[in-house]
Amino acid sequence: MENVACQQSREYMFSTSLEDLSGADIVAVREVDSEFFNLLNKYGLEEYYLSLTNAKINIDCFKAMTEADIKEIFNDEIGTRIKFRGLVNEWRLANQLAPISTCCCQHTDQSSASGSISQSDSISSFSGSGSSTYKFSLQNFLDSAVGIKICANYNANNELGASDRETLISNIVRDHLEKDVPMNSAMFDNITGDIVKRFASEKKEYYFQKEKRNGKLYNKYRSMSRAFRKSGFFLNISA
């Protein structure tokens, strides 16, 4: 027979969110799987406890969980996916299991490459996974639904609007962060070159200025990667 805590927890899963629970109710929920709840709480994800358990997701699932599973669970909530991956990896390492990686390739240090960004400006210093040979395809992005809309707007106005520029830049950075691929000067230069070839009205210096270490694409990547580093949700795992 199920204990009272389990019965109460299941009722809450279908009827309310964690914010609506009283102190006594939260204690009852914690008693069901205190280790799972405490891990979520440590990473600031306690609000997801009920929805996860309602989906039959618990610590036992960590043994076989993949990056694809995490992406399916949290969809486009990139920050939440990063946090949850860190949570799962902490548990897996503590239980002598290999961590989940977003890429099967081991990261190769690029700090000595010509024109590369310093380690403090690259997620390679706190990611540890991702391929140094990865190449972003602008055309593949422009063939997506979002990319097609950007191209249509450009064709209609003969220029990219501020919103479309931001969307383009954000998607480029997101693509690399999701794959844990650190960007360097050569990548910024190549991607910027592709952009100005496709959109003739665009200026290369708007996106990247190699000598000044500046530009919207460069700054977006640097700000986002620094935010992720400060969050501490990337594990620095050496091969």
Rank of each mutant, 00 (worst) to 15 (best):
S17H: 08
S129H: 08
V4A: 10
D143E: 15
T133V: 14
A28I: 03
T102M: 06
I70H: 06
S120C: 15
Y48C: 04
A24E: 06
N219G: 05
R198C: 13
K220P: 00
S116R: 00
S111Y: 07
S131R: 06
D20Y: 04
L138T: 01
V29G: 03
L177E: 10
L235H: 02
Q106H: 15
A28R: 04
Y43D: 04
D189Y: 12
D180L: 06
N171S: 09
L235V: 00
N38F: 11
A64V: 12
A68L: 15
R81W: 12
S223N: 08
Q110T: 15
A113T: 02
F62W: 10
G86W: 09
V29P: 03
A113R: 05
V173A: 15
T167F: 08
L235R: 07
K216V: 01
L142H: 10
M65R: 02
L21V: 00
L168Q: 13
G128P: 10
I195S: 12
T133P: 00
T167G: 09
L52A: 08
R198W: 04
I123C: 15
E72Q: 09
H176C: 14
M65H: 09
E11V: 00
E2T: 04
S124N: 05
M224Y: 00
A98Q: 12
N158L: 01
F62S: 06
S238R: 11
E202G: 09
V29K: 03
V196N: 05
N155S: 11
L39K: 06
R229W: 08
S201H: 08
T16S: 14
M183W: 00
S231C: 12
Q7F: 03
L18N: 03
S125K: 13
E46F: 09
C61S: 14
I191N: 05
F233R: 01
S223T: 05
Y48V: 00
S127Y: 10
Y43S: 03
D143K: 14
R30A: 08
S17I: 14
W91I: 12
A64W: 11
F208P: 00
Q119I: 14
N89M: 04
E211Q: 09
D33Q: 05
L39E: 07
D143Q: 15
E159N: 11
F141E: 13
A28N: 07
N157T: 11
W91R: 14
M65Q: 04
S201E: 14
S127H: 13
K203C: 00
G215H: 09
C103M: 11
A239Q: 06
G128I: 08
G23T: 07
E11F: 02
F234M: 02
A200T: 03
R165A: 02
C61A: 15
T108S: 11
I100M: 13
